[in-house]
Design a binder for these strands. Structure first.
Lengths: 63, 63
DNA sequence: TCAATATGTAAAGCTTACTAGACATGCGAA
DNA sequence: TTCGCATGTCTAGTAAGCTTTACATATTGA
């Protein structure tokens, strides 16, 4: 799965650390998801979607 | 997270086994997700949403 | 130039998602 | 009654998500 986290973060001028704090996960998790090391769990995907005010499908894309 | 799998399955008259085969997961996984033992991974949630033709948010609900 | 911030990465460890195999129960059909 | 199917559950194992700690590099600002 691909995702638009980096762009969404850039639009808000948030660092990975900023995003991690808002999501209540580690910075390494944000980095790993962004760099495609692994996919977030479903609960985390919901938190991400809620934070950015978009449907999960608009942020995460099947590849 | 709660989910509407049981209802969606019932609407189509599918057994847990039927659903498992269409999702290419084990029957135990379908059962565990339905009975709330754990949440599906994000990729599996996407497959479920695609199979039922609904957004993830319409099938899985935060509790 | 030095310090702080941002990003990427790695190891070790814990928790969660998923598997196969097995067993129990209930139920409708032959 | 007996058979087969559907569901729930359990165990043991593997894989994936996530944490903390740590280190390396690049960039920016005082």
């Amino acid at each position: 799965m691909k995702n638009r986290l980096k762009v969404l973060r850039a639009e808000r001028d948030w660092s990975q650390q900023d995003l991690a704090e808002r999501l209540e996960v580690s910075r390494q998790s944000v980095n790993a998801i962004e760099t495609g090391k692994y996919d977030p769990s479903l609960p985390l995907a919901f938190r991400i979607a809620e934070l950015f005010g978009q449907p999960i499908e608009a942020i995460f894309l099947r590849d």
